[in-house]
Design a protein around this nucleic acid. Structure first.
Lengths: 101, 101
DNA sequence: ACGTTATGCAAGCCGATGCTTGCCTGTCAA
DNA sequence: TTGACAGGCAAGCATCGGCTTGCATAACGT
């Protein structure tokens, strides 16, 4: 289950505006379910994305390590994880130890 | 001539591995021309990208504000600009840990 | 002037990606 | 059990993005 977290996955995950708004929502209220996120996106951000679309976005965020999940009965709660964000910026802010890929 | 810099442009620019290596190269040696960057990518990183491909990558980086250029005769020098990187990460790092622990 | 050098522009190809559609699995309450 | 609820899986489609190809432009050296 330990997928290799690549640096590019983090940036690709952040490249989509809907996924960034999802991270905003999880920052505002952590541990939401898929349906909570969907309803919040439609009401607060006027995004007409379907449930399946949001689910796929959450998969991308989880593959990048930016979102972690915990199952409880028929609910699946989503938590933001900012750990992958910290090292990737300092890559160019100070001296490079160049990553592969 | 003031192009509107969108946040998404920065992430989309960073989503490509070749563009990240270009930023690495500019961090290592600032103010390179297009041909210098091309030769460095082939020799040091073994990337077989053509000149036109690198040129288009530099356009994307410049549109995102991550690279600034200065023309001098028939040369065009490219400089890295890390300013757009700083605000976009703190967007999710200022987390007040509402329900953590 | 001539050729070379450094870069720009635009159309086209093709794989990647976001989204939809449809159906399926699992969980809880009445 | 039955039904509603929360979520998952997979195929198809349309657009986007990276790259190539080919030609054009401008600045230098001789």
């Amino acid at each position: 289950m330990h997928n290799v977290l690549r640096v590019g996955d983090v940036f690709k995950a952040l490249a989509d505006p809907t996924r960034r708004i999802i991270l905003d929502e999880l920052t505002d209220r952590n541990g939401q379910t898929l349906f909570e996120i969907c309803s919040r996106l439609t009401t607060k951000h006027h995004l007409g994305s379907s449930r399946q679309a949001i689910s796929q976005h959450l998969d991308v965020l989880e593959a990048a390590g930016l979102v972690e999940t915990r199952r409880e009965g028929r609910y699946k709660f989503h938590y933001i994880n900012t750990a992958p964000l910290e090292p990737i910026i300092e890559r160019w802010l100070r001296n490079p130890e160049k990553d592969a890929e």
